[in-house]
Every structure is written in structure tokens, then in C-alpha cells.
Nucleic acid binder design. Structure first.
Lengths: 359, 359
DNA sequence: TGGAGTTGCTGAAAGGTTTCAAGACGATTG
DNA sequence: CAATCGTCTTGAAACCTTTCAGCAACTCCA
């Protein structure tokens, strides 16, 4: 523990206490204590209405006094169904995805299910490991914002019985539902806005290009240029290694290092974290935003508005995205006539100071 | 879907495809296909070194061709152990906790375990539900940043065999390890800094008071006043309903509404989200920060530095907190001589513009 | 060549729950 | 009073895996 002072004390005021062994009072012990059969205890647990109030009370008392905790593995093994949904997130540190997760939790709670969050952290290996794990756990279903939506693992899950809904990406392979925002349009909105303000040389900051969102937003940017009759070289691509604040700072360093004549006058970032990092670094290196560099982010996370220079950003309906995805998943796992769907929402440009009145 | 345009298409290019049934090729089917016994398949899975290369190859081929996926419920039921850790977070939308989670994941990965994240979202009922769920799942252990550390449920888990480590809170009941940062000291640092700058009337923004961190930081603030010989009324408490940006904005509204003469000249917020909201609202209502109102946050999340006015904050070793907690948990569940510990880290004041050169 | 040791595989038991056909019991009806 | 019905409860089977004692075949050495 090198980078922080720490102090360690024994807990429990010195009363040494060994770790307790797992003492499982099972359904059997409860049955014995209550003087009923196994089946009855199970009924109390699963169909309380069929057991007489008296017996039920006895059983409940026995459960309480023994500290009975149902063994979910056994339940699931026998009953064959899990009451858990998982959301495998691209980056739990990005408020965009935690807002999506909130929408997921909302829909799950309404259906009486619980949500486990998993964080792939933009790492394909971790994503794969989590997918395997979740499949082995036989969760009700998986929501995922994938790193690579062509992964074979991703395609295999549904055919083996684990429904998968892709979030924040569209996918049309007939195996999944997907819920997304039109990222091409989003990119187009951002660049059209900058072009309208008179910017000619515009940087696109984003990466890696394995991430679909990064590519789509860039393609939208290109399309906006094309539509405006500008040459594609006007879009200068700065590729980053991830979609994080730190990478944004790195990009800012590179950008600020360019001679003013060759430096773009505006930057469009693939997400707000990059934009915030870029903004921070550029400001600290003496560039004025928006006068020297206009910046557009993407996602419109809560912090975009509170930034040093309030950030123009492309807004996505975050919670709605999550809620809709969860609802599709629930439909898929409960409705035998379920048909896969692709839902696409429309993004919206929110203009703030970081691009206001430039040039 | 009221607040966003959306478009829905069938997926799969119109090829209607029904949801697949769960077709479980089990260990039995694999054994039959490979011409070996159940036990051998299990050995391939769990102790590959004891089976001859030839048989192993046959079994692996059979597994691949049948798409075998091990049923984790059955495995766990029989083997009695889970390979999963859970971190029950207070607020997944707070970057502080996702950084802690990163530390947890790091330590877990090093030990070959996986982490499920759960979000209580500052809601005691959800916290209780998740604790029940995790206990039923028989996870290896639970890390938790509790809403109420005196909850009976929390105390019961360890005695029934699920180790629990409390994160970001100290607790001394002999049942848990805990890892925390000295929040009293943190509060003291913040207020001492403001006093040194000459502030007399200082607001404390935080709540609800059921959350331990909120109380400790306030107590630290009071202590600093006491030590400086100031009357306790100089600390004006603004109680919030949660530790969020939105609540911070609300507090800003209240604060800015006060007549200048009665308004505090500085505010210490129980966390950075509150501080960012407060900052944003005050600025938009025309207060200058730090001239009219100095602000100190808590946690030093990544966005504190990038805020409209870079935020003075009390820094905590976030990842280290998570990593240490996970390591204690792992020790508890693997080391029979484990003794509960309370680890306390020391916070550090990071001074930025939001308090610089005030008064 | 006989015995011991080794290697690799087998088969049955066990783990805690749910499910379901069937039984027990009392009440109601003809 | 017998027959029928309803309400509760029971006991055994089933879910899928791991574990472990035991067995077969082979090697090695005396």
C-alpha cells in the first residue's frame, strides 16, 4: 500500500473470533423442526396459499429460529429458472452506461427480477469471460454493450437458450434484439453544427475502431462533410486507445502541440469523457475554448453541463435505452411468440458554450 | 416512449425465427458421445491432468460438437463453492464507487474470481433485497458500502457463512473486516482549510444522516470549528435527500436564495456530486465561485478537476480501498486463521480554484 | 512369474430443492 | 350411512454435477 498512509486495527475489540463455518440449515431441518414434510416447507416457500395458516406459521417460525436461507443453486437446478438479469457494460466508469443501467434496473424491478452488473472495461477477454460465466449461471438473460458485436460467443448464446439483447448498438443477425441510437445521425448533427459555425478543419477524436459506436459516429461526421461538399481530408482523425478522460487528455496534448496554422479549429469527440479530458488539457495548455478550439462531445452525461466550459454534446435517451432493452429481454424470455426487434432512437444536439459563437 | 423519437424494425431481415428452447447437453450426453463415463467428463473439466491425452481429446471434441455449457448451479450445489464476489454499491452513478469497484475487480481477477456489481442506489429496501439474494446465491463473499451499517441483515450474513467486508465505512462489531478512510479527519481538513482562508459562516451540505459518511464528515467539520475556538452555529447544515448532483443543485438554489448578509461564504459538501451540482447552480444564479462562495467537495473524483471552477476536494485512495477490501475478503474466505481487521486510510486535501485566494 | 505400484477409468452416492401423483382427513350431500 | 368432494399434506423422483472408493490393466522389479 504505497500511495496512502494506512492504519490497521483488529476488529471486535480484541475478542478473537474465528471465521464461522457455513452451517446450512436446509429445508430438511426446517421440516423436522416444524414437524412437517419437506414438501410442505417447499410449499410455504413457493405457494404459501395452499398451506393452512397454522402449518405455515409453524414452518415460518422454524425457518426464523434456524436461520434458514434458501439455497438458490438447488432451487435453480431443480426449477430450471433464474431470477437474475445481467448487464455486461462496456465501461462502468462512464456515467452514460450507469444511466443505462438505471433504466435496466427500473424495468427489472418492475418485473420482480434482480440485476447483476458486469464490467468488461473495454477488454475483449473480460467480456468473453463474463459471457461464459453468465451462460454457465443460466441467468434469465443478458444485456450487453459489446466491444465487438461479431463475436462468435455473442451469437452462440441465444441458440443455446440464453436470450441476449444488444444495447447501444444495432445488430441484424436475427439472433438478438437490439436497442440503439442512430449514431451516424448523431455524428452528422455534430459536424453539421460545426460546419454551420464556419469551421473547416475539424478533428475527430475517438478509438479504438473496433468499437462500433466510434466508427458510426465517424461515418456520420464524414457524411456531413460530404453533404456540405467539403473534402474528406477536412476531418482529421485522432485515434485514441480507449474512450476515457485520460485518453482525451492525451489527444489534447497532441492537438495543442500542432502549429496553430495546421491545428483544427474544432474537435468532435466520440464521447463526453474524451471531450472532458480534451477540454481540460487544452485549457491548461493555454488554448481558449471555444475561441481557439470548439469542442463537441457525445452522450450528454450529467458532467458535460458542469464542465469548465459547458460542453456541447449529442444527447441520447440513456435510461430509456436501458429500460427498453430490458423490456425486450423480458418479452423474449417469457413470450413464446417473441420476434426480434431493432429499436432505434434519435439523438439530439445540445448546444452549449463550448461551441457557442465561435469564429 | 414519450421523450424520444424511435423507430422499430424486425431483426433478421424478415426471416422470422422463434426464440430457441434451452437445450441442455449435459455431462451425460457428452459422456455418451465420447464413449466414456460421467466421472471422466467431470475429470476433464476439473482435473484435466489425471485423464489421458487421448480420452481428453475425445471428450473435448464431444463437448465442442454438442455445445456443452457446464451448469454452474449443479456444480455449486455439489461442490459447495462459488467463484463469485459481489460488490453492493451505494451508488453506481457516483464515479467514486466505480473506481472502488475497479480496485475490487483487480484483486478478484488476480485471484481468479469474478465480480458481480449490485447497486442499492441509496435505497435501504434494495440493499436488503440484494443482501438476501446474494446470501441465497451463496456467493464467496460480499463487499458492501452500506446505507445503514447497523442493519441486522448485515450482521447475520457472516455468522451464516457468507463473509462480508464493509467498504468506506469502519465498523467494529467483530463480525466484519472493514476498510475505510478517516472521514472525521477529512471533514476536519476541509473546514480547517476554509477557516484558514478566513471564512466564518460555513455551510455543510449533505444527507441523509442515516449514511455514516455524511455524519462523520460533519462531525469532523464540527471538530475543526471547536479546535479553532469558533461557535458551532457557524456551521450551517443544509440537509439533502441524497448525495447526487441534482440534490446539490437544490442546495445551491436554497443557498443562493439567502440574503447576502446571512449567506455562508463557503460550503463544504459531503461529496463531489453535491459540490458539482451546487457549483453549477450557484454559478448559473450569478454567484461567483470562489469570491462569493468557496466550495470544497469530497472524494476528488475525476470530474472535480474538470469542473467549471476546478474543485477543491478531499481525496481518498479509491482503487486502493477496493483492492484492500477484496483482499481482506479473499483472506477471510480462504484462510482459516483469518482475523477481522479495520483498515483506515488517510485522506488528503487537494486545493484548487474553488477555494483559491478567497476573502 | 508373482507381487507391488501406477495410471486411467468407472459407477454410484450425494448435494438441497421443487414437483407431482397420491394419500389422509373432515365435511357435505343424497 | 355411504359416497363424494375439498383441503392439506406427504414421499419419492428428478435436476446436473462432483467426488471417491474401487477396479482393470499395465509397468517394474525381484
Amino acid at each position: 500500500m504505497p500511495d496512502s498512509a494506512s492504519e490497521t486495527l483488529p476488529s471486535g475489540g480484541g475478542k478473537r473470533r474465528k471465521a464461522a463455518k457455513r452451517h446450512t440449515a436446509g429445508v430438511k431441518a426446517v421440516a423436522a423442526a416444524a414437524g412437517v414434510s419437506l414438501g410442505t416447507v417447499s410449499n410455504v416457500l413457493n405457494r404459501p396459499e395452499v398451506v393452512s395458516p397454522l402449518t405455515r406459521a409453524k414452518v415460518e417460525a422454524a425457518m426464523a429460529s434456524l436461520g434458514f436461507v434458501r439455497n438458490e443453486s438447488a432451487r435453480q437446478l431443480r426449477a430450471g429458472s433464474s431470477r437474475i438479469l445481467a448487464y455486461l457494460m462496456l465501461d462502468a466508469g462512464n456515467p452514460f452506461f450507469t444511466d443505462v443501467a438505471k433504466g435496466v434496473e427500473e424495468a427489472a424491478q418492475a418485473a420482480g427480477l434482480s440485476v447483476f452488473l458486469c464490467n468488461s472495461n473495454e477488454d475483449a477477454d473480460r467480456e468473453a469471460d463474463y459471457l461464459d460465466l453468465l451462460e454457465q449461471q443460466r441467468v434469465q438473460g443478458v444485456l450487453i454493450t459489446p466491444i465487438d458485436q461479431n463475436s462468435s460467443r455473442l451469437r452462440k448464446l441465444p441458440s443455446r437458450g440464453t436470450p441476449v439483447v444488444v444495447v447501444d448498438r444495432n445488430i441484424d443477425d436475427g439472433e438478438h434484439c437490439s436497442v440503439a441510437v442512430n449514431d451516424i445521425l448523431g455524428g452528422e448533427l455534430a459536424i453539421a453544427h460545426l460546419l454551420e459555425l464556419g469551421h473547416e478543419r475539424i478533428a475527430y477524436v475517438g478509438g479504438p475502431n473496433t468499437i462500433g459506436q466510434v466508427v458510426d459516429r465517424r461515418d456520420g461526421a464524414r457524411r456531413a462533410l460530404r453533404k456540405a461538399g467539403k473534402p474528406p481530408e477536412n476531418l482529421i482523425e485522432l485515434t485514441t486507445g480507449a474512450l476515457t478522460v485520460a485518453e482525451g487528455r492525451g489527444a489534447g496534448q497532441r492537438l495543442a502541440g500542432l502549429p496553430a496554422a495546421r491545428r483544427p479549429t474544432a474537435a468532435f469527440c466520440a464521447n463526453d469523457l474524451l471531450a472532458l479530458g480534451l477540454l481540460q488539457q487544452c485549457v491548461s495548455l493555454g488554448l481558449r475554448v471555444p475561441e481557439d478550439l470548439a469542442i463537441v462531445g457525445y452522450d450528454d452525461i450529467e458532467f458535460a453541463e458542469a464542465a469548465a466550459v459547458p460542453l456541447t454534446s449529442v444527447r441520447q435517451p440513456r435510461q430509456l435505452l436501458g429500460r427498453t432493452a430490458a423490456e425486450l429481454l423480458l418479452d423474449e424470455s417469457s413470450n413464446p411468440d417473441h420476434e426480434h426487434q431493432r429499436v432505434t432512437f434519435t439523438p439530439e444536439l445540445v448546444v452549449r458554450t463550448s461551441t457557442r459563437g465561435t469564429l
